[in-house]
Write a protein that binds this DNA or RNA. Sequence first.
DNA 1: TTAAGTGCAAATATTTTGCTGTCAC
DNA 2: GTGACAGCAAAATATTTGCACTTAA
Lengths: 148, 148
Amino acid sequence: MPFANTEIPGKFQAFLAQRGIRMTEQRRAILNVIETAKKHLDAGQILRRARKLDPSIDRSTVYRTLGLLKRHGLIDELDLMHLDGEAHYYERKLNRDHIHLACLRCGRITEFVSDLFESLKEQVEKECGYRIAVARLEIGGYCSKCRT
Amino acid sequence: MPFANTEIPGKFQAFLAQRGIRMTEQRRAILNVIETAKKHLDAGQILRRARKLDPSIDRSTVYRTLGLLKRHGLIDELDLMHLDGEAHYYERKLNRDHIHLACLRCGRITEFVSDLFESLKEQVEKECGYRIAVARLEIGGYCSKCRT
DNA sequence: TTAAGTGCAAATATTTTGCTGTCAC
DNA sequence: GTGACAGCAAAATATTTGCACTTAA
């Protein structure tokens, strides 16, 4: 079940308001797009969808808003093994980190949650003396339907 | 000990020759740069270093060669959390996958090998039915010197 | 009111491609 | 000799920035 939504819609707005960050028509549209997305979107796709809500939105506003959300840890940035160009993909940061699996043949993206991943992060924090802010595990391979 | 070199220099050449891929002056220079690199290099840095060995080398030759090496699984492509621009970084693929830790404050890159990472990959292969070709775990955080 | 945010246009950065000539095998 | 590869220039793609105008708080 990818993108299992266990969060309250509008959470971003509340979070940003709390930090005294201004809410604009444009940001509302962009947040809406990201919060309701059923798949990973790149900046161009976010722009196109946000424009359906507010046609005046500019590309640079999308990038500036993505930067804002990234800085506040509300979204994660993914590459998805660059299956399709060099763009980045964005998703709401959920409570639990998950692994992204990209099938190199069919392009399907699968998400996977694992306790082992959590243990690995703990090990890194302990043994490397790191405080982890963001952990991104992306795997390229062949899914059960595509592997030979 | 990052980049512990357990491989024979010139391995790339042998590997490519075996597959009937032509060896040119330019490729030799690029391979040399990558094989002897002590840190992660992006395409521009590889170009600059390769030009010291063969000044005529073009940027596109570097990209085409990187593509070739990637397709043959000789190098890995990294983002290193995009600490510095959007370029990709390259490194020789070693026998053992390792995790890349990027300090968000000082920019230092640390490498870490973990059995837990290997177990996690096995779990993914088993439970997701994937055959993994490449696994990239990149962590952004604060190293022991930088964390508050 | 006013600092933060926006659109617009132009710049930057990175990577890819078409074409023609060259070279490894 | 010939097909793979190279350089060159131009395009494509992705993202950032300067600036003047607008707007949320």
